[in-house]
Structures are given as structure tokens and as C-alpha cells.
Simulated assay, not measured.
Amino acid sequence: MGGSNFYKSRAKMRDLIESLIRKSMAGMDLAMDKMFALQPETYLRYEERFSELARLLECLQVELESVDSWGELDRIQRRVYFLEERFEDIDSVLRKRPRRSRSRFSMDNLFRVSQGGPGRSRSANGTDENGLSLEEACEVLGIDMTAKLPEIRKKFRTLMKELHPDIRMGDRSKEGQMRKILAAYEILKQRQVTS
């Protein structure tokens, strides 16, 4: 494993989690000070969001103590960064300040990370790790190879709305198809950005 580097990285992750928990608690206090008397419903919404963030971070903190490999540490790090982004979303609205962002993340990577997988990669033969080529990606979305990004995005959103569990009364049976559509969209979007 990497010995001391691994333990240093784990300690940094522990510090980040503790910092985010403290910030979440401070956010709840600020919401209490600013809104409780005048806008109790809004305060309760903020309290719920910050409490949920703190709870998830505490779960990750416990999970972090049993981590003994770089892969597990990387998976927790990605989840912490996702929660950090969520914290920034909530906190920036509460404090009425511009949102600070670590980096952009793709929904494709979010699905992979949430299931313990690595981030996105491409093989030498031009296919995605899901085995989708450019032609197959176009077929999955039902568009031409010559489609531009706005058309690709519109088709992607339409398909995702049709298959989303919230629209289908909680039915998650189309989740596999959603992942395939998401992978196809990521391939086509990347092609548009690089061309």
C-alpha cells in the first residue's frame, strides 16, 4: 500500500470531514439566528438539510476508520467531495454569496462512484468502459452521428425524464437503461467538446 502516504491521506480526509461537520453545524446556527423568528419554515428546511449533511458525513467518518486500501479511500474521498459540493449549494444560498466550487462532476461518474466503481475511462479501441462505441451511443439516444450538442442534450433530457423513478411512481426497473443512456450522453458530449 503506500505506508505513510496512505495514512497521511486518510488523516487529511478525516480533517476535511470534521471541518465539513463543523461548518454544517455553524450553518444550522446561522439559519437559527437569521430565520427562526421571521421564517420558521425556511429555518426548518435549512436545519433538515444541514442535519442530513452532518449525518452522512458522520457515517463516512466511521467508515473512514476501517479503510485500509487506496481504492476504498478514493471512494470515500469522492463521496466527501460530493457532499462538500452539496454543502456549498446550501450554504451559498443561506449566506447570499457566490457559490464556491471544487470542480464539476458528471452524473455518469456519480453513478459509478456511488456503486463503488472507478471514474470514467476509455479503451484503446475507442469504446467506453461500458463497451459503447460512438455509433452505439448515437443508437442508444436515437440520434444521427452528425447531431450537435443542443440536440443531443435535448434528446438525453427527454429520455431521462421518461425513465426517471420520480416520474414512474418510484419504479426503479429502468435504472440500467438510464445508465446506458447516461454513458451514451457522456460519450457524445465528450466528442462534441473535443471536436
Rank of each mutant, 00 (worst) to 15 (best):
L44M: 11
A183Q: 05
E139F: 04
M1N: 06
K8S: 14
D33I: 03
G2S: 15
R153D: 14
R95Q: 15
C138D: 13
R168P: 02
S123W: 06
R122K: 03
R100V: 04
L159M: 15
K148G: 05
T158Y: 08
K96D: 11
R55E: 07
E135I: 12
H164K: 05
V80E: 10
F156N: 09
F87E: 10
R104C: 08
V113D: 14
K174D: 00
I90P: 05
N5G: 07
R55V: 04
R153H: 12
E136V: 02
E41S: 11
R157Q: 08
I90Q: 03
D128W: 08
E85M: 14
T127N: 08
K148V: 06
R75F: 01
Y43A: 04
R49N: 01
I187S: 05
S133F: 07
A147T: 10
E63W: 01
A26K: 13
S24L: 02
R78G: 14
I21G: 00
I17K: 07
V193W: 08
K174R: 15
L163E: 01
E129G: 10
L83S: 06
R120M: 03
E175V: 09
M107F: 15
D144L: 06
I90E: 09
D15M: 08
E58M: 08
G126P: 04
A147L: 02
N109V: 14
Y43P: 12
S66C: 06
P118S: 10
R49D: 01
L83H: 07
M169A: 14
